[in-house]
Design a protein around this nucleic acid. Structure first.
Length: 341
DNA sequence: GCTCCACGGGAAGGATAGGCTT
DNA sequence: AAGCCTATCCTTCCCGTGGAGC
C-alpha cells in the first residue's frame, strides 16, 4: 500500500515544484548574487498557509547549493524557536559553531559576535513563520550581516511588521517580495498525484477521490496531503489494498475541523461579529442577522457588503447558507456537524 | 400574477502596496 | 527620497433575477 511514507509528509520537498514556476524564477533571481559571492536582498515570502512558501524556499536554496557549492542554507521555524536565543542558536548550530555554547550562560551578544565573525560561504537563513518571533530585533541584526541572506516567511506583511520598530520597518520596506496564492483544485490534484506515484502503490487511490480531497482542502496543500496521508495510513491498518470511500470520509472531518479553526482566525472584526451572531443563534434569517449586526457595530458596512462577507464565509465553510430566496437562513457549521453525528 | 425579500453581477470610487522614474 | 503610476482589493450603489407567499 504505502511504498514511501516520506513523500506524503508535509515537510517533504519534492524534486520538482509544481505550479510555482514564476515564484521559483523570481526567488532564484533574487538569490543569484550569491553565485558570485555577493549578498542577496532580504526577501519576504507572503501568502496563506499551505501554498508552498516553505517548500519553495527550501527547494530554491537547495537548488542553489547544488549549483554553487559555496553556499549554505539554514532553516529555522520561528514558531518552535520563538525566542531570540533559540533562533540564533539554531542558525549557529547549523553552521557547526555551537560546540562550546552552554545554553543558559551565553549572552546574546556572544551569539551575535559569533555570527558576525562567521566567514564561511554565504548563508541563506530561512526564517519560517517569522511573524511568530517574540523579539524581532533578530531580523534587524541578521539584516546587518552581509554573510547572511534572509528569507522571511509569513502570512501577511502586516503581521510580520506588527511588532517591528521604525528602524526595522524601514529596512524591510525595501525588501524583495514574493507573493503566493491559494492553489486551485486542479493544481492540488496534480500535486497529490505526483506524490501518490512515489509514495503509494498503483491503484490505491482514484482520481475521483483526489478531486474530493482537493475540494475539501480549500486551496491548502498541507490540508490535502494530510487528508491523503491519514486515509492511506488508515487503509493500511485495515489491511485494505486501496483507500475506500469510507476510509476517506473518516479522514476528512479532522482536517476540516482544523481548517475551520484556522479560517475563523483569519476573519476581520466585522466578519467575526457576523460569525458570533450566527454561532449564538445557530440559525438566523438574513434580515435579523443584519439588524443585529448593525446594533453591535459602530460603523456597520452596507447590506451588500455583508452579503459579500457571508457568501465568502459560506465558501470557506466557516458558516453554512441554507435555502434560497425568502427562506434563506445562515447557520453555524459546528451545529450541522452535531446534527449529523 | 403580484409583491416582497434576498441574492449576486457589474460599475464606480477609494484605499493601498509595490514598482518605476526622476 | 519623493513623487507618480499601476495593479489590486474593498466597499458601495444600482439593478435584474428568481423563489415564496399571498
Amino acid at each position: 500500500m504505502i511504498t514511501d511514507a516520506r513523500v506524503l509528509r508535509t515537510g517533504f520537498v519534492p524534486r520538482e515544484v509544481e505550479h510555482r514556476d514564476a515564484e521559483v524564477t523570481h526567488l532564484t533571481e533574487i538569490l543569484a548574487p550569491l553565485i558570485d559571492g555577493d549578498p542577496a536582498d532580504t526577501t519576504l515570502l507572503l501568502g496563506p498557509s499551505g501554498v508552498g512558501k516553505t517548500c519553495l524556499a527550501k527547494y530554491t536554496a537547495e537548488q542553489l547549493r547544488q549549483e554553487v557549492l559555496d553556499v549554505e542554507y539554514q532553516y529555522v521555524n520561528c514558531w518552535q524557536n520563538f525566542s531570540e536565543f533559540r533562533t540564533l542558536y539554531r542558525v549557529l548550530d547549523g553552521l557547526g559553531k555551537t560546540v562550546d555554547i552552554h545554553r543558559q550562560s551565553t549572552p546574546r551578544d556572544e551569539l551575535y559576535e559569533r555570527l558576525r565573525q562567521y566567514d564561511g560561504p554565504p548563508c541563506v537563513v530561512i526564517l519560517d513563520e517569522a511573524d511568530q518571533l517574540e523579539d524581532e530585533s533578530v531580523l534587524y541584526h541578521l539584516h546587518e550581516m552581509p554573510q547572511f541572506s534572509m528569507l522571511l516567511i509569513a502570512n501577511r506583511e502586516r503581521e510580520l511588521l506588527a511588532g517591528a520598530d521604525e528602524r526595522l520597518t524601514s529596512r524591510l520596506r525595501g525588501s524583495e517580495r514574493v507573493h503566493f496564492d491559494r492553489y486551485s483544485a486542479d493544481q492540488l490534484v496534480s500535486i497529490m498525484d505526483a506524490r501518490v506515484k512515489w509514495g503509494l502503490e498503483e491503484g490505491v487511490v482514484s482520481d475521483d477521490q483526489l478531486a474530493t480531497i482537493a475540494d475539501a482542502a480549500g486551496g491548502d496543500a498541507r490540508v490535502a496531503l494530510s487528508i491523503l496521508r491519514t486515509a492511506a495510513r488508515q487503509a493500511h491498518q485495515n489491511y485494505e489494498s486501496e483507500i475506500t470511500d469510507e476510509v476517506l470520509e473518516s479522514a476528512m472531518p479532522r482536517a476540516r475541523a482544523e481548517r475551520h479553526e484556522k479560517d475563523v482566525d483569519t476573519l476581520t472584526p466585522h466578519q467575526r461579529t457576523l460569525y458570533q451572531i450566527i454561532e449564538e443563534h445557530d440559525e438566523i434569517s438574513p434580515n435579523d442577522l443584519y439588524e443585529e449586526y448593525k446594533e453591535r457595530t459602530d460603523d456597520p458596512k452596507t447590506d451588500r457588503t455583508v452579503r459579500n462577507y457571508l457568501s465568502k464565509m459560506d465558501q470557506y465553510d466557516v458558516i453554512e447558507a441554507a435555502g434560497t430566496s425568502r427562506d434563506r437562513t445562515y447557520r453555524s457549521v459546528s451545529e450541522t456537524f452535531d446534527r449529523i453525528e
